[in-house]
Structures are given as structure tokens and as C-alpha cells.
Design a protein around this nucleic acid. Structure first.
Length: 810
DNA sequence: AGCACGCCGACT
DNA sequence: GTCGGCGTGCTC
């Protein structure tokens, strides 16, 4: 009987994107199962790489099975499967829908620590010349490839290799290590301990204590080293001695690096639901009990109590003995949110988000895998949580762009959630105050079931009054200003009443750059077609695309003028203005610069929440999910910067942002007020935001989308080609257009090819096209074919990416 | 990705 | 004559 395994190897190329067949050596027989990671030899040099086992089977005659001379699996990297059958199937789905390699999909599903790293070694296997031995190998048996490279004598070394004096060894390094602590297990029976006690010398108090401790332990009890010391006063050295005498065994215990272990969570109980919440709850629970894979769209205004519906439906899933996933945008995964879940469900909750260290993420993942957690709360990638028997999947703030990954595999968590719901026969709930047009339209067509929450859960809370200020008029009154007169008056008023103010600066489409007032010179990035952004925290100019960094110039490099100044409405500049206007006010600034440090975000919010500041000034990040009862005024300084961007979703994004930020005002008994400053006061996105009328906005925007042949009336695919040479990239795109035109129906529309808005990034040129279509039965095949045929060009440095339903067009 | 093989220019 | 450039094929 011969055992073989099909393995997906860690070589992300089109040609190797198929399973390879390996022999399972006798000593690993029975150990290897689908979903495990293994170490396999690959290619001419038999370098060792990581692979995923897809399936195993036994076969009488391997030659019959495979025309290749199969190689053997070297080792197993896992004790058990790390991906179950569902995940292996989901990887197939992702591969097809996102045009990516299977290996990339598989790796994306696991915590990053489980991605193997490789180390290459040069190993002495025979005598080598003395100078090589001492100068290159420094007298050692083996050196790393990097050390060999640094010696500058690679050609000599390669010759020695051909003579079989040196060998190359490939090492697959496993990085996922559970944190372990040491524990003690007794190896002696009660009687044996008595015997040992007789043999003890007088005065061996430590050993006597150890024996007493062991005697009190059951056969398979494990006591931690710490406990041994605390309870019995047995020191580590005594334990080691005990181990040497064969009295006990020292074992490793896996412990969880619980990132929230320090906190205690008081139990929080379910609140009563109003009629609308109850109706939503009942619809979802009924679907769950019927094992329906219905997708719900829960459209609920800010403060309508969506979260309470989530919590209670999850509780119901747990009661049914099932599990649940709740996705929230990265930015809303605040301690407040986590707290709310932990206090309702306690230890049953695992949290996955980017703020955790790699090790912590792995531990949370392990916690789910060993079924210690049945509720998973996390950002996009939490959709891969290895839960079984899922009863419910919730995606909060469904419209958020962060649910789509913006590099390969370009999956959308919403699509995968629906796929998993079909696998588990469970409902999906998409929740938002401002659903994406796509989802809202699907609800209209009854693909999703629409559930509406139109009342505030806390009835005392009033919807805020929204004031739209026409900045064109403000400008006509005098010089260009950041703050309009009405906004200034209202801020003054709140400061007098000791109430809090939130000010938002819309940074989308904005950056703070440096410009010479004499000649207009703007400091550009040397690698990209974009100006450098000023970063006050590091006192440098940085490129947001490639990371290039340089000093702040004091004189203009072109005309040598000293009048080279900071431009653009950055948060720092607004902060300075505010301090001039309101010297007594305590101002907090929250932007990428002040929240970069781990935990800084949390700390700023706490400071504001504790009323240690009067004004919170920030970018988009303040719009999401914070809940401060004393905030009675929200000001949006520039509502329309996004409106001018060449993106058909700009109105939608503006509406969503304004609605969200307005929701920050008047969360409690005090009435809230919102001031929106804009140059486009009559734009429908701003008008409907003022009226807080999502349905009105939806109708208007649908009309605009219909006119422009955009989603949800058309599907879209974006293809981008990039190369160091501008011509090569452009030429490729024109070829692709020709190829597409030959097969596409006349109803489909191709926009472009055009250079991307920032054409050059990191010294590569980017060209793109956008395809809009309603129905193209062969599209999948054609796009795959394009990728296949492009393989030759990939060798020459051309990169092609296909983004299905892209969210960003610029 | 990374290695071998193979075919061309410019060196001891 | 050979060393080494990188274009191409292939990896169970």
C-alpha cells in the first residue's frame, strides 16, 4: 500500500498553481491529513518549501497514478489540520472569483505567523581550501546564504558545490509558536514516594516539600512551576533535580496570550427591544432556526439599536449550540466595542484585529480552533475564523470599504460571508445606517430581506438639527477661512456651556504639502508622481505611496526663495487656528500622526470621554462609532472635498460620511446640532444628509448610477498593468482592450485604458481600464486567458492585476 | 520563486 | 578559447 498526497506548494505563479503529488513516507503514514501544512522538496535543487495537503489517498501502484517520479514529503508542520474541508473549498471559490493563486488564498485564511519563512544554508560536506574555511565559513560547519553572499566569493563557493564539497540546505522555519509555560507531572506512585522519602537526608527540606507536593497530585495532573513555588515553596532548581532523579516530568503547557486578560468585564444583560428591533430579531432568529441561508439587510438609523439586535441574535445562536461571526470595520473595533461583546458573552468571545501582535492573533485563532470561543468579533479577515456549526454571520457597517482587501486576493468579506452561510445553512445580517447602493438595490429586488429600524432605541434622544453653511457666501463676505461665522458662534456657545464639540476635517482627496509662494514649486516624490506630504511628528516630508522620506526644505530648490510654506488644510494647521481663536479651550487632535502608536487611539478617546478636553478635532476616523453623551455640536469643516474626485461613488461616500459624523451629536438627552460647511450646498448628497433621509438619497443616487451605467446597474472589473517602462504598460493595456473587444457583447463598456491618477508609483507606471457589463457568460474564461497569456510578460517585469468589483477607481 | 540549461558578447 | 550575461522551461 502506497500513500500519496496532493499538495499545493508555496510558489505563487500561474504555472505552479496546481496540486503536486507526493509520496507519504512510511514513518509519516496515518499522520498526514488534508488541511495540514507539510514541508516538501521542490524543483531541481530540491529546495524545501511549505505546502498544503489537499487530499491523501492510498494506491497500490504509484506509477499508475502519476507519470512523474514522485518525491517524498519531508515533514509535517502541524499536529492536526489547520484548514478544514470548508476552508479548502472556500479557497477554490476565492481563487476563481478573485483571479488569484490557490496558495495565496490558503495563506490568507491563516494567521500570518503560520506563513513559513525560508532560510538557505551552505553546508560543508568535504574538505575545502583553508582560506574558504577560515575566511568565509569562519571555521563553522555551515553559514547562511546571506553570509555567503556578503563574503563576495559566491562563484568559488558554487564551484565547490559542483565538486560536492559544499551542499545547500533549505530550511522551512515554522513561526507559529504557542506561548508555553512549564508544568510538572508526577512520575511516581504513592508507594514509590514513600520509599524516596525514607532515603532523604535530614535537612533536605526542599526535596521533602517536593515529595509532599507530588504525593498530593493525581496521576495525570499537571501543576505549573509557579503554582509549585506559590503553594509548596518548591523552587525551580529542586524541580530540575527531581526530573534528573526521575521523580517527575517537566512538560510544556500552551497558554493563551489573552490580550484582554487584564480587564475584568462586568456582566451586561440584554436590554429590552422596541417593536422594530423585536421584529428584526424575530425574523433573523426564525431564519436561523429554519436553517435558511437568507441574507438580511438591517437598515437602521444611528442610535436605533442595531448592536443590541446583533447581541441578542448571537445569544440565540449560542443557545442553539451554534457559533457566530461578527465583522466590524477595523476602525470601529475599539475597546468600547470589544467591551460590549466581552461583557455579554465573556470568555466565549475571540477578538481578531490588527492591533494585536502576531502572537496574540495566533492565540486568538487557536482559541477558536480548539472550540474555546464560539463568538468571533473581528475585522475583514475574521471571516476566515475556523468556526464550525455557524448559526449566524453579521457584518456591521456593511457599506465600509475596508471589507474588501485591496491587494491579492482581492476578496470582499461580504461575498465570503454569504458563501459560508450557504455552507452552514445560516443567515447573514448586513447592518448599516447607510447601506451600500449595491446591497440596498439587492434588498429592493428581494435578493436580501430588508429590515428597517427607523426609531431611536433611546426615545429621549432627539435627532440632531443639521445646518448647511454655504462657504461660497462666507468667502464672499471676506477672506477665505476655515471656520464660518455660524460655526464659530456655536463653538463659543458650547465652550461657555461646558459642552463638548467634535470637529471633522475631511481629508479624502486632500493632503498637506509644501509650496513655494514665489514660484509655486511643490516638493515632489522622486519615485512617484505625487507631492510629498508634511509630517510634523517626524519633521519630515513623506510619500504616502512608496514611503520615501526626506527633510523639510527651508528654501525653494528652484528659485531659492525663503517663502516655501506649508499648504493645504491639515489637521495640524486647523489645530493651530483653533488655539488662536479659542486660547482657553482644551483641544485634542486625532489623525494618523497622533494615533500611530499602539493604544494611542484608545487613549485619546478616553481623554475626551473623561471630559478632559473640550474640542476633538480629527479626520474620518472620528466619524465611526464613538459615543460621547456630552457632545452637542459636530462641525464638518469641508464636506465636499470627496465630491470632486473622479469616482462614481463620491456622492455615496460623502453621504455616508456626513450621516455617520452627524450621528455623533446628541446621543443622550441633550439636543445635538451639526454644522456642515460646504461649497456645494445644493448637492443631493449634502441635502439628503441634512434631511437624514437615506431612502431619498438612495432613489436619487440610483438615478445617477442608472444614467452613468454604473453599479448596481452594471458590474465592473478593473484591470491594471504596471511596468518600469511607461510604454510597455500602456501597450499591454491597449492589447488587452483589443482582446476584450473581440469577445465582449456590444452592451458592455470599456473605459480606458488611461494612466492611473497617480501614474507613477515607486518608479513603476500604472495603466488601467474599467469594464462595465451586465452579462458576459465568458468573462471568467477570457480574463483567465489574458492572465495566462501575460505570463511571458510577467517574466519581463510586467504586473497585471484584475480587481472584480473594485471599490476605488483612482 | 529559484534553479538548470543554453546561447551570445568581452575578457584572461 | 572561457566567464558570465539573462531569456526560457520546469518544478510532483
Amino acid at each position: 500500500m502506497t500513500y500519496v498526497a496532493e499538495v499545493i506548494v508555496d510558489v505563487p505563479t500561474m504555472q505552479t498553481d496546481v496540486p503536486y503529488t507526493y509520496l507519504i513516507p512510511a514513518e509519516l503514514g496515518g499522520q498526514i491529513r488534508p488541511g495540514m501544512r507539510v514541508e516538501v522538496p521542490f524543483g531541481n535543487g530540491n529546495r524545501h518549501i511549505q505546502g498544503f495537503v489537499l487530499k491523501t489517498y492510498d494506491h497500490q501502484n504509484p506509477a499508475e497514478l502519476s507519470e512523474f517520479a514522485m518525491k517524498e514529503i519531508v515533514s509535517v508542520l502541524d499536529l492536526g489540520p489547520v484548514l478544514n474541508q470548508e476552508m479548502l473549498e472556500l479557497a477554490d471559490e476565492m481563487k476563481e472569483t478573485t483571479f488569484s493563486f490557490k496558495i495565496t488564498c490558503l495563506q490568507t485564511m491563516l494567521p500570518s505567523v503560520m506563513r513559513a519563512t525560508y532560510q538557505k544554508w551552505l553546508v560543508l560536506i568535504d574538505e575545502v581550501p583553508e582560506d574558504i574555511l577560515y575566511e568565509v565559513f569562519k571555521g563553522l560547519d555551515e553559514i547562511t546564504w546571506e553570509e555567503a553572499l556578503a563574503s563576495g566569493r559566491l562563484s568559488e563557493l558554487m564551484k565547490l558545490r559542483q565538486n560536492e564539497q559544499i551542499d545547500i540546505r533549505y530550511e522551512v522555519k515554522k513561526r507559529n509558536r504557542s506561548k508555553t509555560i512549564n508544568g510538572v507531572k508526577s512520575s511516581l506512585s504513592f508507594e514509590q514516594i514513600e520509599e524516596e522519602r525514607q532515603g532523604l537526608r535530614k535537612g533536605s527540606t526542599q526535596k521533602a516539600s517536593l515529595l509532599t507536593m507530588l504525593q498530593g497530585m493525581t496521576e495525570d495532573q499537571i501543576m505549573t512551576v509557579k503554582e509549585a513555588n506559590d503553594r509548596f515553596g518548591v523552587k525551580r532548581g529542586t524541580l530540575n533535580a527531581g526530573q534528573r532523579s526521575g521523580w517527575l516530568e517537566i512538560v510544556e503547557i500552551e497558554v493563551n496570550r489573552d490580550p484582554y486578560g487584564k480587564h475584568t468585564f462586568e456582566k451586561n444583560v440584554a436590554m429590552s427591544l422596541n417593536d422594530q428591533q423585536l421584529a428584526a430579531y424575530e425574523a433573523i432568529v426564525a431564519s436561523m432556526k429554519a436553517q435558511d441561508n437568507q441574507t438580511f439587510l438591517l437598515e437602521g438609523i444611528t442610535g436605533s439599536g442595531k448592536t443590541e439586535v446583533y447581541l441578542q441574535t448571537i445569544a440565540e445562536a449560542l443557545d442553539e449550540g451554534k457559533t457566530a461571526i461578527m465583522l466590524v470595520p477595523e476602525i470601529s473595533l475599539t475597546p468600547q466595542t470589544v467591551h460590549r461583546f466581552k461583557s455579554r458573552f465573556g470568555d466565549e468571545v475571540a477578538v481578531l484585529h490588527s492591533g494585536l501582535s502576531e502572537g496574540e492573533k495566533y492565540d486568538e485563532w487557536r482559541k477558536i480552533e480548539r472550540k474555546a470561543a464560539r463568538v468571533v468579533v473581528g475585522a475583514r479577515s475574521a471571516i476566515f475564523a475556523p468556526l464550525e456549526n455557524i448559526g449566524l454571520i453579521i457584518i456591521d457597517e456593511e457599506h465600509e470599504g475596508s471589507y474588501k482587501q485591496d491587494d491579492t486576493p482581492r476578496y470582499h468579506a461580504r461575498d465570503l460571508a454569504i458563501w459560508r452561510s450557504q455552507y452552514h445553512h445560516c443567515p447573514v445580517v448586513l447592518g448599516s445606517a447607510t447601506p451600500s447602493l449595491e446591497s440596498r438595490a439587492r434588498a429592493q429586488k428581494k435578493v436580501y430581506q430588508l429590515l428597517k429600524l427607523t426609531k431611536r432605541a433611546n426615545e429621549a434622544a432627539q435627532l440632531p438639527m443639521i445646518d448647511v453653511i454655504d462657504m461660497r457666501r462666507e468667502m464672499a463676505k471676506g477672506r477665505m477661512q476655515t471656520f464660518s461665522t455660524p460655526l464659530l458662534e456655536k463653538i463659543t456657545d458650547r465652550l461657555q456651556k461646558a459642552e463638548q464639540v467634535v470637529l471633522m476635517l475631511n481629508r479624502r482627496g486632500y493632503s498637506s504639502f509644501i509650496m513655494c509662494r514665489d514660484c509655486g514649486y511643490v516638493l515632489p516624490c522622486p519615485n512617484c508622481d505625487i507631492s510629498l506630504t508634511l509630517h510634523m511628528d517626524s519633521k519630515t516630508m513623506k510619500c504616502h505611496y512608496c514611503g520615501h522620506e526626506e527633510g523639510i526644505p527651508h528654501t525653494c530648490p528652484i528659485c531659492a526663495s525663503q517663502k516655501i510654506r506649508y499648504y493645504g488644510t491639515g489637521t495640524q494647521k486647523v489645530e493651530e487656528e483653533l488655539r488662536d481663536l479659542f486660547p482657553a479651550a482644551r483641544i485634542l487632535r486625532m489623525d494618523v500622526d497622533t494615533t500611530r502608536r499602539k493604544g494611542a487611539h484608545e487613549k485619546l478617546l478616553k481623554t475626551f470621554g473623561d471630559r478632559e478636553a473640550d474640542i476633538l478635532l480629527g479626520t474620518q476616523m472620528i466619524a465611526k462609532g464613538l459615543d460621547f453623551p456630552d457632545v452637542t455640536l459636530v462641525g464638518v469643516l469641508n464636506a465636499d472635498t470627496a465630491l470632486n474626485l473622479p469616482d462614481f461613488r463620491s456622492a455615496e461616500k460623502t453621504f455616508q460620511l456626513l450621516t455617520q459624523v452627524s450621528g455623533r451629536a446628541g446621543r443622550a438627552e441633550k439636543a445635538g446640532e451639526v454644522v456642515i460647511q460646504t461649497f456645494n450646498p445644493n448637492h443631493y448628497s449634502i441635502q439628503y444628509a441634512k434631511e437624514q433621509d437615506f431612502e431619498g438619497f438612495y432613489q436619487a443616487e440610483m438615478q445617477a448610477r442608472h444614467q452613468g451605467n454604473y453599479p448596481p446597474f452594471f458590474y465592473t472589473v478593473q484591470i491594471v498593468a504596471s511596468h518600469e517602462d511607461e510604454n510597455t504598460a500602456a501597450k499591454k493595456m491597449y492589447e488587452i482592450v483589443l482582446q476584450l473587444k473581440q469577445v465582449l457583447s456590444p452592451n458592455s463598456i470599456i473605459l480606458g485604458p488611461t494612466p492611473k491618477a497617480v501614474m507613477r508609483v515607486n518608479n513603476r507606471y500604472f495603466y488601467q481600464l474599467v469594464l462595465k457589463y451586465k452579462k458576459e457568460a465568458n468573462l471568467q474564461v477570457v480574463l483567465k486567458q489574458i492572465l495566462d497569456e501575460t505570463q511571458v510578460d510577467v517574466r519581463k517585469g510586467l504586473k497585471i492585476s484584475i480587481d472584480v468589483e473594485p471599490l476605488n477607481f483612482i
